[in-house]
Write a protein that binds this DNA or RNA. Sequence first.
DNA 1: TTAGTTCAGGTCATCATGACTGTAACTCTT
DNA 2: AAGAGTTACAGTCATGATGACCTGAACTAA
Lengths: 251, 251
Amino acid sequence: MTGFMFSEAANVTERRQQPPALAISTVIFALRPSASSGRPVLWLPLVRRIREPFRDHWALPGGPLTQAESLQDAAARNLQETTGLVPKYLEQLYAFGGLHRSPGQRVVSIAYWALVQPTEAALAEESINVKWFRADKLQQLAFDHNEIVNYALWRLRNKMTYGTIAYHLLGEKFTLAQVREVYEAVLDRALDPANFRRQLTADRQIEATGEYLQGGKHRPPRLYRYTGALAADKYDNFDDDDLDGKAAAVP
Amino acid sequence: MTGFMFSEAANVTERRQQPPALAISTVIFALRPSASSGRPVLWLPLVRRIREPFRDHWALPGGPLTQAESLQDAAARNLQETTGLVPKYLEQLYAFGGLHRSPGQRVVSIAYWALVQPTEAALAEESINVKWFRADKLQQLAFDHNEIVNYALWRLRNKMTYGTIAYHLLGEKFTLAQVREVYEAVLDRALDPANFRRQLTADRQIEATGEYLQGGKHRPPRLYRYTGALAADKYDNFDDDDLDGKAAAVP
DNA sequence: TTAGTTCAGGTCATCATGACTGTAACTCTT
DNA sequence: AAGAGTTACAGTCATGATGACCTGAACTAA
């Protein structure tokens, strides 16, 4: 034992009265049809801070962790309070615990990211304190929330390239072009329609319904269905911990 | 504003006296030459619990988060106290926050995983309260630490297949066979020597020194050097947070 | 000298991918 | 009604990565 842990003994009393606070923040992603092209674009809701620090800056929805709920539940509740919707996907992102993240009391934030499918009403219903922003062009946010959003975006794009999260952003039936548009919106680049189609049709977890999508200004595309299991965050609702840190002294 | 957050007002006082405790636990991996074959095998150090709950069970090294250090620093210090070594690699794994992880007070554990290169002395120097175990055959650990170890192992193997962490477990100069043995030890399967060589030699970040490793019972292999940058955990020492959860009320 | 070992460089078939072409099927315009 | 415009759908071709396998080189040990 090095004694390092108590090297700032003068602060111990103050620390015990003010332990690090635990908060949950969530990056919420949703697709919204572009006004011009009609193709989906990635958006996220932010909340306006009504107190110092960073008063009137935009920030991620979040709040303190209450004793009664798990981390995942806290994130889901927060999300529901912000968007009024149940998340299609929710995954833990990272625990941010730098010493000076927040002026004043130290705060450790456990960040989550989520996918939602907002109704038209939920997207339109903005207040002065909650607003939707395009994920790709964000202004300066409160605290380090820009970094959190960028990390979440990176994770989302990663999962999109070799995963099945795209189907969390689609309905039960969809055309292959709609799937491609989801990919293009998230990855922010055009994909070759023919090659994309080849990959999806090689996937046995996607099967064609007999139906076709009518109403377009061109040849009606087939409607498909995703038959595989949709992934969920594996690591939650775990039970364990270790508090007797002193037993960890070196052999 | 829903007021949901304070819907259990009766418990607020109790909660404020016992907020969720924050702890850091670390899964520490090291390679150790097999007694029989001499090839490296994956090991990790565990500590014996000296108190209830799970008294006399083996557990991950860890301890409470003090006010004065970042999450990463807390993990690094803990690791140093356990193995006596400086980590070659340290990365945040996951925040475990289930309601009943620990009997009694609620605890949220932020888990890290690390790679170390222990000296012979550090590996041999076991006490009654700290012991090295093979990563692939673990007994039942305290709390949910088996799941944490398994998750860390999964992450390690993932990073090994498409990353550069292997070089954190090697010295400055190494033979290609030694790199392959590291991969085989972590992934727990044999790799084709010729194909493995082809991949590594195609990597421009690996260059041959002029030297050869002498002393083997066969043709002396070349010694190589890794010239690329070794990855570190990107997301640490961040500064931000959001406490005013009430601003997150739905529009 | 010979056997045993690993090192090192190579071939071959297979598969995934990006770039690209052509035809089918529908709507809209004139 | 004919043609233009658009997308759906099916296919080709070259390329690169990969797994399986082969051969000779260079060293040690018997």
